[in-house]
Design a protein around this nucleic acid. Structure first.
Lengths: 344, 344
DNA sequence: TTGAAAGCGCTACCAA
DNA sequence: TTGGTAGCGCTTTCAA
């Protein structure tokens, strides 16, 4: 590619300044307005074919790329959907969900941006998000309060959607009813005749938001029955599982909901090493219905968790953006259904 | 929701327009300049304490949040580090790496943004990224060419870092030498006396970027030896594994590198169901060194993969941003080391 | 100590 | 069909 020097001497291959539409206009011998019309295919104005060609050629020659910030500043709005990156490590389920959502929003001509706001909390975080003036914000997890929602809306967000355990005033809510997962597991174990039921509680920080409601769900299901529930703290490490397994006889449990399939595998291995028979002595149920569980022996029963379709969520966002005055919608989105295999 | 007129009557709790610094200035009875000084704690100018207080009060009262786009437009630069979201599903290793990187860059006062550009390819994608005028771009995977790098640099990116299998002209490179993983596995299997070696090749689309160089690494290590290498296409599904296992006797393999721990588990299970003894009949080696592998019986030997520390990468980015003229650095960042357990 | 004003890059209105 | 120009929200220099 030939470089055209703007000083008489030999030009460096990297012009130091970013080309603007004014540069393109100058190079094409037209006004900035014309450049804008051409590059945006403005249908309101007809530009002659030769002019179009000159503008396109100049833009390509200069390597012109429009400045998104300037454009949305001028337009007064953007089509950015902001999604704060979840602080806690998410599993493959959620990862797939996010990918699907990106596709769906992309095909509605939104731009999805994941913004890492590690370390900021609550309203602090909301302010940081608001600075970007997104048209919609999709907040996974808890941690956003009504204040935060208000900040975002004041900053022009036409839709705020929370994806977590509880409604937040003013925001659309996708209620992830984790307690339903526990409820489902407990119902199953109870139906299988188990009465002394353990519930694994991961010790890893950040997982309480999931583990506590799951435990609550178990408790809720077994209230007013003859079943007894025992919480079982467990770190995701062999030693912790071995220690727990060594106390198994005295714990005297005939069923356990292991939080998810990974903890279930960890625990099952330790129990089997300890000589505990599954499911005869203790039935085990996991959650997430990973491939993993199908490979264990005995095959692991699991709670299949159905996340909302990215498509549906994208449409909710679009609807909310188009009618920002509408009542916030509330949907309960965590489908929990038992997949029985051989461990229970 | 009740509509409130913006006439002199009862003050509306929801003003319909986003407050600007001019609104704050008006409310505080000062000029926009003063507002800017106060809110940015400008050290160049001393503002009296009463004025500061008035400005802060007005800002809080109005719920003022600065407009990031306007600010960086004025400043001529931003501190945004753009990271296109990888198209292929990434494992927990990479997830942790990204989180760590966000922390590290955050503490250097950069803002990490993951931008989902699904469906755009090569230079198309680079242009979309360039529109955001990031100060640095961190591109995982292949797919960015020298053209793309040039576009980004022209758009003001002071550092472009690729994180993938090959160097790209003009960009810093973090070379992920996947072939080293295969090399390491092959060396181990060979040392254990295995000579008829299978290499699992996932059939899932998108994984070729990892699986092909890993296979190449195996081939490279075993070239000019008496060992024979066989590629084993395998989908991540029980049926596929069962089908492969059913052909195991005729394949006549005494060692297999299973791509990673998950495929290894899938294959091991199928082989065991088929009566193949591990490691006696066939040795199995995985990769990623997940907890998972420690829980299998026999315990799975695995290639431990060391990703660069987020800290180190953040420092590379910072260095590159501060000295944009410097020679692009190239680092080989994938440490591969064998963790021998009982499956080989 | 504070204010007036220019200008970042872009689009859209109005005039030619 | 094209050009001039105002102004989006912000920072910063210069002047008062």
């Amino acid at each position: 590619m030939v470089q055209i020097p703007n000083t008489p001497s030999a030009a460096p291959p990297t012009p130091r300044s970013v080309p603007t539409s004014a540069d393109v206009a100058r190079a094409a011998g037209v006004s900035r307005a014309t450049v804008s019309y051409v590059l945006n295919n403005s249908s309101a104005v007809r530009i002659s074919e030769p002019t179009r060609r000159r503008v396109h050629a100049a833009a390509k020659e200069l390597g012109y790329v429009p400045h998104a910030a300037a454009r949305s500043l001028r337009a007064g709005h953007s089509r950015m959907v902001l999604m704060p990156a979840p602080a806690i490590p998410v599993g493959p389920l959620f990862g797939r969900f996010v990918t699907e959502l990106q596709w769906a929003l992309g095909s509605l001509d939104y731009t999805v941006v994941q913004y890492g706001t590690l370390g900021l909390h609550g309203d602090e975080a909301a302010r940081a998000w608001a600075e970007l003036r997104p048209v919609a914000v999709l907040v996974p997890g808890a941690g956003l309060g009504p204040q935060g929602v208000a900040v975002l809306k004041r900053a022009g967000a036409r839709a705020v959607v929370t994806f977590g355990p509880e409604r937040v005033d003013g925001a659309h809510a996708l209620l992830t009813d984790q307690s339903g997962v526990g409820h489902c597991a407990a119902a199953h174990l109870y139906a299988r005749g188990r009465r002394r039921i353990g519930v694994v509680i991961p010790e890893e920080p950040g997982l309480e938001v999931f583990s506590r409601p799951r435990l609550d769900g178990v408790r809720r299901r077994l209230r007013d029955t003859d079943a007894v529930v025992t919480g079982l703290p467990l770190a995701y490490a062999e030693a912790s599982a071995a220690e727990l397994a060594s106390r198994w006889r005295e714990l005297d449990l005939d069923g356990v909901f292991a939080y998810n399939d990974e903890y279930a595998m960890l625990l099952m291995r330790a129990l089997q090493d300890e000589g505990v028979r599954i499911p005869e002595d203790t039935a085990v149920v996991g959650a997430d219905d990973l491939m993993l569980g199908r490979l264990l022996r005995p095959r692991l029963s699991s709670i299949h968790i159905e996340l909302p379709s990215g498509r549906a969520l994208a449409e909710l966002v679009d609807r909310a953006v188009c009618a920002p005055g509408a009542q916030p919608e509330t949907h309960t989105v965590l489908g929990a259904s038992l997949v029985q295999r051989d461990s229970s």
